[in-house]
Design a protein around this nucleic acid. Structure first.
Lengths: 339, 339
DNA sequence: TGGACCCGTGCGAACGTTTTCATACCATGC
DNA sequence: GCATGGTATGAAAACGTTCGCACGGGTCCA
């Protein structure tokens, strides 16, 4: 293994200079820096991350915790996040909670010492459990919690777009098939739906749920939707929408002739379904990348100020970044003229 | 932060004893051990992984490299792998190569120092580039390379099952829509197809490809399949199968009436398609878990012997574990009686 | 010309653990 | 009773980096 000592010897400088030349290039003379960099390259020097982590207290890794990797929504998020993290020189520790709030807390606290920052997607855990993390900068995706940094999709706007689209097709009663009870996004969408029907008095809403965010959830919800008298339904996500369609078809109903279905997240499965799903969604890899940016920014800030994550977030006026990304309704074949 | 020193003081022993009591319990007296363990628990001691890694040369993490996280096949593999790794006390560094062989090599070498072992899924890289890794135990998934540890699905058997199924339905000419040219699995399936038609003289095979392992690949292949005169087609994976079906439908052909389609991998999208896909597949999370087991076993072995990964693999008779998991044909609605 | 200051560099002390070696103790065998 | 061997513990040296501090030499201004 080639160490700073080897590079130092090769470049004819001390190990301190090597360390500086690589970590803070502006603190060392131009000529020495090139000499060091060249020597390092020549010898194939790779800093021992354990040592630098031990000394400097940084790990060079961020955690990325999702409820379910097999869910295409989180798969896309993860893909975007790891690509961005890598581009910034960070490794990504991925963990899957299996939708279990307890495991979520356990994972988050357990990962703590191994990472510089953590992105927590669609957290189901109670607020106080998340507060307990504290140690590393934490960024929430799809949930806002006080002034904590977060990245969320604009669900309210998405729901508005969906309702307006359906209304334009002549629908006057829209059902919403909701997801996990503890889901913050779900609550936002319900709020968005409330707001939309308040402002569009000729449309009525029926809220159903909680259902599991999988195909099975759609199966379970379909009959309730039919019984509700709604002519259109917005699903918690694309998988639920597909489950709905499957069950409706099994009952002899046609989508979109008898019922229009709107998916959510616009994952790639939206185009696999038949009919292809009209769906509300953001650019998911981009969303994952943004979350990574925010957490890395948070890391840098907390490192500069030397304070804990919470302090760093609250210290300056930026409030640590609460990003809300736009969403867009993509119209495909699963929505049509109201019967 | 609470360190060994704190625990040592609380337990009235030296730090060496603390370290031993926690890491090798049998090397310390019963009474002292309980005292130390209690003190550690009391103080909430968590060993600093950076320090132990620096001293002991182990990282407590394994790498998991896949071509595309958004592909449900790899998503499932990753899910299984990270769950198993966590159960064994290891963290998982996930990286996505974007199907790029060069990035693959770069990632694998770049991750080297941060991990104890590496699982590399469906590697596209050239053999010599993989040899260059060397440093950490490497386990390949869906590719065999010399005596290197690997975990593969039994593609040959899977293809045999698919062909026999189609033959039983009366099909006499079967097309195969292949995936990436550098894919080892693809080659195995082609070999399996060759073997199957050799042994079943009344069946003929048409091999097509290479196509991209996505829906678009299926789109591209569909017309070639039709022109080939085959009455059934086996696709490289479920996404390709779905692409085939979409394009066939666009041309006014019905699946399975005019053409039977068999998917591969039996991912969850097989049940999303309509008609639902007949598909060949293994238990994917289990496959990921097995790969993790193999790499962790490899890690333990190389640590024991103190030798490099390759040596460790070849040293004893076990050949480091070349596991082949069984696959199974799941019959659904996309295959039917030959026209 | 001398003092103040700055810049580039080197020295050496951490960081928290593991592990080797040495020591003290006790039991066993002649 | 003394040598022998084994066992439980302690002291201290690593592991490879970062970073505070100090030093030398130069520049600038008085």
């Amino acid at each position: 293994m080639v160490t700073v000592h080897d590079v130092a010897r090769a470049a004819g400088v001390s190990i301190s200079t090597v360390s500086r030349a690589l970590a803070m290039p502006e603190r060392v003379a131009e000529s020495t820096r090139t000499r060091v960099v060249l020597a390092a390259q020549e010898l194939g020097y790779r800093p021992n991350s354990a040592a630098s982590r031990l000394r400097a207290g940084r790990t060079g890794a961020v955690g990325f915790v999702v409820p379910d990797l097999e869910n295409p929504y989180f798969a896309s998020l993860t893909k975007g996040a790891q690509a961005r993290a890598r581009a910034c020189g960070y490794a990504v520790l991925v963990a899957d909670t299996g939708e279990d709030p307890e495991l979520e807390v356990e994972l988050v606290t357990g990962m703590g010492p191994q990472i510089d920052g953590l992105v927590l997607c669609s957290p189901r855990a109670a607020e106080r459990d998340l507060d307990a993390v504290g140690a590393v900068p934490l960024v929430l995706v799809n949930r806002e919690l006080g002034v904590r940094p977060s990245v969320t999709a604009n669900d309210v706007s998405g729901m508005r777009q969906a309702v307006e689209h359906l209304r334009a097709l002549g629908h006057r009663c829209v059902a919403y098939v909701g997801g996990p009870a503890r889901s913050w996004s779900d609550a936002r969408r319900r709020a968005g739906l409330d707001q939309a029907v308040r402002e569009l008095p000729d449309v009525r809403a029926v809220q159903l749920g909680a259902f599991r965010p999988h195909v099975a959830g759609g199966h379970a919800a379909a009959d309730l939707v039919v019984a509700s008298g709604a002519t259109a339904v917005v699903a918690y996500n694309d998988l639920v929408a597909i489950g709905l369609i499957e069950r409706l078809r099994a009952r002899g109903l046609d989508v979109p002739r008898d019922l229009s279905v709107v998916g959510w997240d616009d994952t790639f499965v939206a185009t696999l379904a038949s009919p292809e799903l009209t769906s509300v969604g953001a650019d998911l890899p981009a969303l994952g990348a943004v979350a990574t940016d925010v957490v890395l920014e948070s890391v840098r800030r907390s490192r500069r100020s030397g304070a804990g994550a919470a302090d760093a977030a609250g210290a300056d006026g930026e409030s640590g970044g609460q990003v809300r990304v736009p969403v867009e309704l993509v119209v495909r074949a699963s929505t049509g003229i109201a019967p």
